[in-house]
């Protein structure tokens, strides 16, 4: 199945629930105040946030007359174009060896995303090793070990409560010894206001830079598509601690739209790398901005 079809399938409920709001808005006969009000509601309901919504609406209001657009159907294409511009980035190609450090707050689906990523790289013929650096949450490494087994990759873990940076160190040593292509680091979920845990993340980051200075290293933050404007704060704080390169957007198969990435992508210039749209091991897909917009509006 293509990205589009899968996404469409995954977003079916979303479209039924919230896509209807956009649909209703674009059913308007003319582009009046009422039309913009409905559009505002649709955008805010998709978690795009007040600021991004107002910016987009303003741009729409100024470009529509310039382009002499009067029909809602044409306005819809214009809206898609504006939205696309804010999230369409070219992601630099990976070079091997690759180190992906996966971070994010509690419960967004980090561990699951790491398992699925492992599977994705394996299907591309890469060798993978996972660092179970979430030594904080109860039973996190057990959960990851099950995923590693499913994906058929190596995993380095240690006792619960031990130093995560040490686990990462061991994993990198193992990767160098085995000439492994991809290292995936699963970190402990942390609320972004916990200073100590953010320090720990910095330490892991340093270990990677020191041990594999030539590796292609990307820091990806996992965001839950159902999260509201808090996602902005999450990116802000993690970005301060470890320079985020991109986003993995999970749980897009619920009824939420993940509109918050509009706000984030625009503000931070961060591309979305992957989206998670289901519970199966192959339900993590590389992101396609155009199809994403087409699927939600």
């Amino acid at each position: 199945m293509s990205f589009f079809n899968k996404l469409k399938e995954g977003l079916k409920k979303t479209r039924e629930n919230m896509g209807r709001k956009f649909f209703e808005a674009f059913k308007a006969k003319e582009l009046d105040g009422n039309f913009y009000d409905e559009l505002e509601m649709a955008m805010i309901s998709s978690d795009m946030g007040v600021t991004a919504t107002e910016q987009v609406l303003e741009e729409l209001k100024s470009t529509l007359p310039k382009k002499k657009i009067t029909k809602p159907a044409e306005a819809k294409e214009e809206l898609k174009r504006i939205l696309l511009e804010s999230i369409d980035y070219i992601i630099p190609e990976y070079t091997m060896p690759l180190v992906l450090m996966i971070s994010g707050v509690n419960g967004v689906g980090k561990t699951t995303a790491v398992g699925k990523l492992a599977h994705l790289f394996v299907t591309q013929g890469k060798s993978v090793v996972i660092a179970a650096a979430d030594t904080f949450r109860a039973a996190a490494s057990e959960q990851l070990e099950i995923w590693a087994k499913r994906a058929g990759v190596r995993i380095i873990s240690s006792m619960s409560g031990s130093d995560p940076a040490a686990v990462v160190f061991d994993t990198l040593a193992s990767a160098k010894a085995h000439n492994t292509d991809v290292v995936l680091i699963d970190t402990a979920g942390r609320l972004h206001n916990k200073v100590n845990l953010m320090q720990e993340l910095k330490k892991i980051n340093k270990v990677v830079e020191r041990e594999m200075p030539d590796a292609d290293k990307r820091n990806l933050i996992v965001l839950d598509a159902t999260t509201g404007q808090n996602a902005v704060t999450q990116v802000d704080v993690f970005n301060d601690a470890i320079d985020i390169d991109g986003i993995i957007l999970t749980k897009l198969d619920g009824t939420a739209k993940g509109g918050v990435i509009m706000a984030i992508s625009a503000d931070y210039g961060l591309p979305v790398y992957y989206v998670g749209i289901g519970e199966q091991i192959d339900d993590l897909l590389p992101f396609n901005a155009e199809e994403f917009i087409n699927a939600i509006i």
């Binding site: 159902t226 999260t227 404007q229 996602a231 619920g254 009824t255 918050v260």
Partner: peptide
């Protein structure tokens, strides 16, 4: 309910 939920919280 996760208090960080966005607009979807009410649907859930």
């Amino acid at each position: 309910v996760d208090s960080m939920l966005g607009q979807d919280s009410v649907n859930v």
